[in-house]
């Protein structure tokens, strides 16, 4: 294995959109090494290794989950100090949870010091509730594009597409690493 990157991601979004469910299913598919820590503060940590296709490299993904309202507790403030990628989750049957994403994003970005903004993904969950859908994929896509986020739709209940957002985070992070190596080489 050429390089193993360590990626720390915080999941945010409105309560009850399925953040916990998404991490649970991602953790429990059993294909790779995985661990589950529960930190004393009630923040959940999921660790998983994802190979980056065609590179021989891998990304160790640390995903911090937090119960909705406590998101910006002191503990998480600390985490935000080191740059992260972001996993922003909303519920496709709940328009407010989608509208609030810009608030979450702004808050997250304001916490990150230094020069680079965190990359990230936007995840619309609960696509199985077809008749109750109010947020269209195109609408989410358009907003995400404007924010530099990649956009996904999932149904944790139907176990649909749940790995794609995480693989995307790993790929984005690996890409950031490659870009930084270019910078480091250029400065040498």
């Amino acid at each position: 294995m050429a390089v193993r990157l360590f990626l720390c991601s915080v999941r945010t979004g409105d309560p009850a959109v399925g953040k916990t469910a998404l991490a649970q299913i991602f953790r429990s598919d059993g294909a790779h090494f995985q661990k589950n820590y529960t930190l004393t503060t009630g923040v959940d940590l999921v660790v998983k290794t994802l190979p980056v296709p065609d590179t021989g490299d891998s990304v160790e993904l640390f995903i911090f989950d937090s119960a909705g309202k406590e998101l910006f507790s002191e503990m998480l403030d600390k985490l935000w100090e080191s740059p992260n990628v972001l996993c922003l989750v909303y519920d496709v049957t709940n328009e407010q949870s989608f509208l609030n994403c810009s608030k979450w994003l702004e808050k997250a970005r304001s916490q990150v010091p230094g020069t680079s903004l965190p990359a990230g993904v936007l995840v619309g969950n609960k696509t199985d509730l077809v008749s109750r859908r109010v947020v269209e994929a195109a609408q989410a896509q358009e907003w995400a594009l404007g924010q530099g986020l990649e956009c996904f739709e999932t149904s944790v209940k139907e176990m649909e597409n749940y790995e794609a957002p995480f693989q995307c985070l790993a790929r984005q992070f690996h890409q950031l690493y490659r870009e930084k190596l270019e910078v480091f080489h250029a400065l040498a």
Binding site: V3, F6, L7, C8, A188
Partner: peptide, 25 residues
């Protein structure tokens, strides 16, 4: 941290062109 292409030995090899890079948090 170590990327096998950019190992920590690069810090003390006397060559300013080579470097060690962190790979995460």
């Amino acid at each position: 941290s170590s990327d096998e292409k950019h190992p920590p030995e690069n810090i003390i090899d006397g060559n300013p062109e080579t470097f060690w890079t962190t790979t995460g948090m």
